[in-house]
Computed example of a mutant assay.
Amino acid sequence: MDDDVTVLPPFDVTRAAIDQLAALGGCVLIDVEDAGCCGSTYVFASVPADALPDGARRYGCPGAWLAVGPAAAAVLPGAVLDYTARLKPPRFRVLRNPNTADVCPCRRSFGGPWPGPRQPSCRSYQPMPWDDDYDPPIAWKRRTGYRSDAT
């Protein structure tokens, strides 16, 4: 891919998400894994723009690359990727996804009916992988068994 070209993804990306991608100074990968209270969850990672995993596509423009893994590519068309620092933890989130009827209220998990609050598989307070400053609530850490790399 030519680094001087802007390539638009098959979903909308808000100005806040673009600004956060640029602030991270590289490339953010979004993909999907089997996890979370509804069965599937969006996962994010900071990756070099020239070293994407097999099957991932790169969108955006220099300084604001977004890579989309194959599993995410199947469910994101028509959705909106947003970023907000108002939530705790600050995070990317997928809004108004027409391909995922069942969604957890935190917008991280989707696929099956939401089983209700306080699930051990809850991802609502999971920090972004590059966010070393956020310390999730103790009750959530106990319930989910969460351990950061620092602990």
Rank of each mutant, 00 (worst) to 15 (best):
Cys61Glu: 08
Cys37Glu: 12
Asp50Pro: 02
Arg108Tyr: 02
Val13Tyr: 00
Pro77Thr: 15
Trp140Cys: 05
Lys141His: 08
Arg15Asn: 13
Gly36Gln: 05
Pro120Trp: 03
Leu52Arg: 00
Trp130Val: 13
Ala35Pro: 07
Trp65Pro: 09
Pro105Met: 07
Ala85Ser: 15
Pro105His: 06
Thr144Phe: 09
Pro117Met: 01
Ile138Pro: 06
Ala72Ile: 12
Trp140Lys: 05
Ala16Ile: 12
Val80Ile: 15
Asp34Glu: 12
Arg91Glu: 12
Tyr134Ala: 04
Arg108Trp: 00
Pro113Asn: 00
Arg143Val: 10
Gly111Arg: 00
Tyr134Pro: 06
Pro53Ile: 07
Glu33Leu: 09
Pro115Arg: 00
Ser148Val: 07
Tyr146Thr: 01
Tyr134Lys: 03
Phe11Trp: 08
Met1Asp: 14
Leu29Lys: 05
Tyr146Glu: 02
Val47Pro: 07
Leu95Asn: 08
Gly39Trp: 09
Pro136Gln: 03
Gly60Met: 04
Phe44Trp: 14
Cys106Phe: 01
Val43Ser: 06
Asp82Gln: 11
Lys88Pro: 01
Pro120Gly: 07
Ala72Arg: 06
Ile138Phe: 12
Gly63Tyr: 00
Pro53Thr: 07
Val28Arg: 02
Ser121Ala: 15
Cys104His: 01
Ser124Gln: 10
Val94Trp: 01
Arg118Leu: 13
Val103Phe: 03
Arg57Met: 07
Pro53Cys: 05
Gly116Arg: 03
Ser124Met: 06
Val103Asp: 01
Pro120Asn: 04
Ser46Lys: 12
Thr6Trp: 06
Ala71Asp: 14
Trp130Lys: 05
Cys27Arg: 04
Pro10Phe: 07
Tyr42Leu: 11
Leu24Tyr: 05
Arg143Asn: 15
Asp102Gly: 08
Ala16Asp: 14
Gly55Gln: 01
Cys61Thr: 13
Phe92Met: 11
Gly111Gln: 03
Trp130Asn: 09
Arg123Trp: 02
Arg96Tyr: 09
Leu21Ser: 14
Tyr59Gln: 02
Asp132Pro: 02
Ala23Gly: 13
Gly111Pro: 10
Asp133Phe: 08
Arg96Pro: 00
Gln126Arg: 10
Val32His: 01
Asp31Tyr: 03
Ala35Tyr: 03
Ala101Thr: 14
Pro117Ala: 12
Ala85Met: 11
Ala49Asp: 12
Ser121Asp: 14
Asp4Glu: 14
Ile18Tyr: 10
Thr151Lys: 00
Arg108Gln: 11
Ser148Trp: 02
Pro127Lys: 02
Arg107Val: 04
Leu52Asn: 04
Asp82Tyr: 06
Asp3Thr: 15
Pro48Asp: 10
Ala45Arg: 11
Thr144Trp: 09
Tyr134Phe: 15
Asp135Ser: 13
Cys122Gly: 08
Ala74Tyr: 06
Pro105Cys: 09
Ala73Trp: 01
Trp140Ala: 02
Thr14Val: 05
Asp31Trp: 05
Val47Glu: 04
Ala22Gln: 12
Gly55Cys: 05
Phe44Glu: 09
Asp132Tyr: 05
Ser148Cys: 13
Arg91Ile: 14
Asp4Asn: 14
Pro98Arg: 05
Phe44Met: 11
Cys122Asn: 03
Gly60Thr: 11
Thr14Arg: 06
Arg142Leu: 15
Ala150Ser: 13
Gln20Asn: 12
Val43Asp: 01
Ala35His: 06
Arg108Gly: 11
Pro113Thr: 11
Ala72Trp: 04
Thr6Gln: 12
Asp82Ala: 15
Gly69Ile: 10
Arg15Asp: 15
Ala139Asn: 13
Phe110Val: 09
